[in-house]
Every structure is written in C-alpha cells, then in structure tokens.
Design a protein around this nucleic acid. Structure first.
Lengths: 234, 234
DNA sequence: GGCAAAAGCGTGGTTAACCAATTTTAATGA
DNA sequence: TCATTAAAATTGGTTAACCACGCTTTTGCC
C-alpha cells in the first residue's frame, strides 16, 4: 500500500469535494454570471474546512475561467451560465492525468499548425531565435551529445513565432513532460538525431521562405520518423 | 490610471522575480535533474520574501512540469536539463494573455482532431452523453432561447469521447473564455443557432457511424459559418 | 560489535492570525 | 432633510506559527 499516493488522492479528494460544494451552492442559490459568491471566510465556515482549502479550490476554478476573484471586493461567477458551469465542473472533476501517447498526439497536432502559422507570421527576431536554437542543436549532435533539450527548444521557438499565445502556452505545458519521457525511453539518440539536423534545417528554411505548405510537409516528415520510433519503443 | 491593473502587474512581477531567482539558483548551483532544491524556508529567507510567495512560484513551475514537490521530502528538479529549463522559464516569464482570435484558431484546430478521434474511439456512453447534449441544445434553440452553453457542452462531449486527456484538458481550459466572448459579441444567435442544429446532428451521426473523415468534414462546415461570423463581427 | 528502536530534526502541507484597501454605514453639521 | 466625512466592518491577499510524516542519528540492549 502506497501511503504517498493515498495522501495525494486524499488531498485531491478534499479539493474536489470543496469544488463540488461550491458548484452546489451556485446551483442552490441560482447564482448567475457576475453574481458574487459568499466570502472565503463564510464558505470555509459553511463547508467546515479551512479557508486555505477554499482558496485553492477557488483558484482552480479561476484557472478554468469559471470564477473571478477581485481583491477587496469578492469572488464572482464568470460570464458562463449555470449549464456550462455544471458541465465543465463535472469534466474537471474526473480529468485524467495525460499519458505519453496523448501528449505526442497533441504535440504533433499543435506543431503541424504552429509551423504553418510561423511561416506566415515570423519576424526577423523569430528567425534569429530559431536559427540559434538550430545551431545549438546541430553543435550538440555533431559532438555526439544528447540533444533532446535543444531539439525541443527549436520547436518551442517555432511555437513562439506562430504568434498564437494559446498554442504557445499549450506547447510550453506539454514540452517538459515530453522531454522527460524521451529521456526515459531513450528516444532521439544517435542516427535519429543526426537525420534531425537536416529535417530541422529544412523546416527552418521553409519558414524563412514563408512557405507554409512546405514547412508543414517538412514537419510531417520530421514527425514521421519520431512517431514510428515512439510507438515502436512503447 | 487603473490601480487594479497596477497591483495585479505588481503581484505578477514579484512572482516572476522569485521564479527568476529560482532559475538563477539552479544555474549557479548546477542543479541537475532529480537534484533537490533548498527547502522553502531557506529559499524564502535567501530571497527575502515570505514562504508563501516561494510556494506559489514553485507551484507554477511545478504546473509546467519543471519542478516536483514531494511531501515530507523536498522539491526536486524534474527530468528536464538546464538548457531546456532556462529556455522554458524564459518563455513562461513573457507569456501573453491570449486574445480571442488565438482562442478560436486553437479551438478549431483541436476540434477538427477530436472529432476524428471521437469517431474512432467513442463508446456507447460517449454517444449517450453527446446525444443528450445535442437534445438540450436543440430544445433551447427551438424555444428561441440562447443556447451557447449547450452548444459548447456538445463540443466538450466530443472532446471527452476523443479519449485524449490532453486535448480534453485544453478544450476545457479555453471553453469558458470562448463562451464569455461569444456572449459579449453576440455570436451564435437566431438563424445561426438554427442551422447549428442540423450541423450538430450531422456531426453526431458521423461519429456514431464511426466515419472520421465525414465527421471532420461536417465539423469543418460547422466552423465555416462560425469562423466567418466571428471574424466579421470583430 | 552489531542491530534495533527511539528521539530529534527537517520536510512540505495546513491553519489561523494579520494587513491593506474598499465599501458601507452612521453620525454630524449645514 | 441631505450632504459630507469619518469610522467600522468586510473583502481577498499575506505572513507566520503549527502539524504530521519521514529520514537520520544516536543510544541502549543483546
């Protein structure tokens, strides 16, 4: 029996119970968009938990855009109606932790888009950033060193050049997990990394030439190798 | 001069300063993956800020998968090397708040994929969930009521059926913001909602028939109307 | 000498007291 | 009666004290 997991699941459970209670309160009181929630102190008393717990629950709901806290004023229901609120909270409560396959699937989807957007929107600054990331990658690979980090930083530079901050944020949030798994499964070493230089360079050139179709095609080639490698390994 | 914005920016700044200092510490001490950071108390003392501030900074870095806190043990550097750590923190520090256009762009990208995955992976439970969401939407529209929420809940049901928890999470995190903006700009009313019934139904049927290509095509049609509407409105 | 048990210390997590700012209310004076 | 002002209460944010658990060290027994 793993105590640590138990305690974590306990924490999560407490947290979710409070979120559940906040949801019930909103329903019971028929709170509508921009209505004010009771103060954190009243909620903590009502729910029989400490104020800190209530705060973290509110922060989580705030992260998903369902509530909005304003200092010295109160916590308010966002411009999201009861029906959506209930549905979304339901989904939040049974969110699973993503598996590696889901991460890779999502990454490929995101990057086939960011590379096109980057081709259309990249500035000179973006090009410089990508170029130096590419150089760092090439240097490491030619030295026979592991270059997973430099690899991913090049891809992040593309995401940044896409000028879509949502996709950029999403890329940022999945990249560390991907690096971890790559390191664990020893994806991306030796000959694969070597061919990566050409592939990266091709992508860079296509973006530089502002050719979105070509850039996407080159990215697809890059991922084909990677994709097979990942799924064979697993 | 907006004082509220000033104070928020101040908070963010303090937060980012601490993140910056943690990064410098990791670099200075040459901390490698799985190395342990100094305790939160020591960090708060070293940085001259309260422990709570340090905690929130650590939690943010933990959210992005760069650190890992273990109760009664310590905070550890994730399996992400120094180079990636530095690059990602740089990006995190100047993340912009997403604009509506970026949200819609990302939503369309995600949904054209989730609808395909849902066609392949949906279970009977998923179908039931989508069906009842569709019914709720239809009912509201036929009553001439605003059905933005029901609309989005149908799309979330698809995301859930895609069995990709990463994409599901991403959809969840952008949906409230999208609903807010739809309500603000009065997207999705009247005749658009009416035609939405047929479009939604077509998508549902394609998923039911496990026809990913058709499902994607129907989703594309659905978005075409929406896309034009959004961009004309703005 | 070796091993086990217990005690002490260090950890992240939790709680409660405190703060600054804002809003509301009440009192006072015109 | 109304306006104005000041004080008190209410808010989310911050800080510091507290807790339960785990690890290490020390001590005592075999």
């Amino acid at each position: 029996m793993n105590l640590e997991v138990l305690s974590i699941s306990d924490n999560k459970k407490t947290q979710n119970v409070v979120i559940e209670k906040i949801r019930e309160l909103i329903n019971y009181k028929n709170l509508e968009p921009n209505d004010k929630l009771p103060s954190e102190r009243m909620l903590s008393e009502k729910f029989g938990v400490s104020r800190g717990i209530v705060r973290t629950a509110i922060q989580k709901l705030e992260f998903y855009g369902l509530l909005k806290s304003i200092p010295q004023s109160g916590t308010f229901v966002a411009d999201v109606g009861c029906i959506a609120m209930n549905g979304i909270i339901d989904d939040i409560l049974d969110l699973e932790t993503p598996d590696f396959k889901a991460l890779v699937e999502t990454r490929i989807l995101l990057e086939l888009k960011t590379v096109k957007l980057a081709s259309l929107r990249r500035t000179e600054t973006d090009l410089n950033r990508m170029k130096s990331a590419l150089n760092a990658y090439t240097k490491k690979v030619l030295n026979n060193e592991n270059a997973v980090q430099e690899d991913l930083l090049f891809h992040l530079a593309i995401a940044k050049a896409s000028k879509n901050s949502t996709m950029n944020t999403f890329m940022l949030s999945i990249t560390p997990e991907i690096i971890t798994n790559f390191a664990k499964y020893h994806v991306c070493d030796d000959d694969l990394a070597m061919s990566g230089i050409d592939e990266h360079t091709a992508i860079y050139e296509a973006i530089k030439d502002q050719n979105p179709a070509l850039a996407r095609e080159k990215m697809k080639i890059h991922f084909k190798t990677l994709y097979q490698y990942c799924y064979n390994k697993q």
